[in-house]
Nucleic acid binder design. Sequence first.
DNA 1: ATTTATGCAAAACTTTTGCATGGGA
DNA 2: TCCCATGCAAAAGTTTTGCATAAAT
Lengths: 149, 149
Amino acid sequence: MSNAHHSPHVEVLKSAGYRVTRARLAVLAVLEAEQGHITSAGVIAQVERIDPTIGRASVFRALDLFTQLGIIRPTYIDTSLTPTYVMMRGGHHHHVICTACKSFFEFEDCGLEAVTGNLERTLGIKISGHLLEFFGVCADCLPGASGGS
Amino acid sequence: MSNAHHSPHVEVLKSAGYRVTRARLAVLAVLEAEQGHITSAGVIAQVERIDPTIGRASVFRALDLFTQLGIIRPTYIDTSLTPTYVMMRGGHHHHVICTACKSFFEFEDCGLEAVTGNLERTLGIKISGHLLEFFGVCADCLPGASGGS
DNA sequence: ATTTATGCAAAACTTTTGCATGGGA
DNA sequence: TCCCATGCAAAAGTTTTGCATAAAT
């Protein structure tokens, strides 16, 4: 029937020699629908809605695999109990997190090309991606925003 | 007796209104001795050696507090079971992680001053620090390193 | 036809909590 | 002295595992 997944991630799976299974496709679908920033518990809940026959274990296995493949990256946002996964589009991800309200803002331009090249040259390594997180206080949480003096 | 802790972090604790306790000092000592990159289990083990009367719960409470204060930051290195904490010296931390052998290399120069300023201006936020992680394959793990054809 | 991946449910760990007590300020 | 922080041990969660079965190639 319809063979209409064109997610580039499916190709990543295939070319790395992994099978394209229903569980993996479901997790991938959830991650893409959320456009990043989702906890393992969130993924489990959403996958359950898509297909209740998929077990938790497979979700964790898929999250681990996708992390290894560089498709996603676990990070800590508020609690240390469970990580939040972000999409590594093109191998990289950049965001600002408000330390007060935990809201986040993703942005594109990081200007890290030069640093990347320097590191590769200096250390003789091959860099495949990066995660850049800024911490701060957002406009709404800044003193004087809406509850100020 | 000797009052010889000059760790700037102790001042951070005090000025934020938190008490300087034995448990917190022990955790701080371990973090500083390790110079970053240590798991919660590692901290618990080291603290146990320093002072067996300190309980696990206090270690976790201290790690949470230090994270809130921006002294450390949890991140995932290899397993998703437990985070690895890195020191946020001066509010920031930069490293490269080898995705093959999990070794890491910290570096100083990130060239993010301009981006930081741009974000503050554009979003009307106040940025206090950042974490920059590069992922790649280190020289030793690159094909042709020591077992290569 | 093979071999990888899955689901299930239990096991293994890590982190959190409640509460009486100890110890900073 | 007052109140925050601690230790203990149990509770709450999350993540992992073993194994027979399903399913992708």
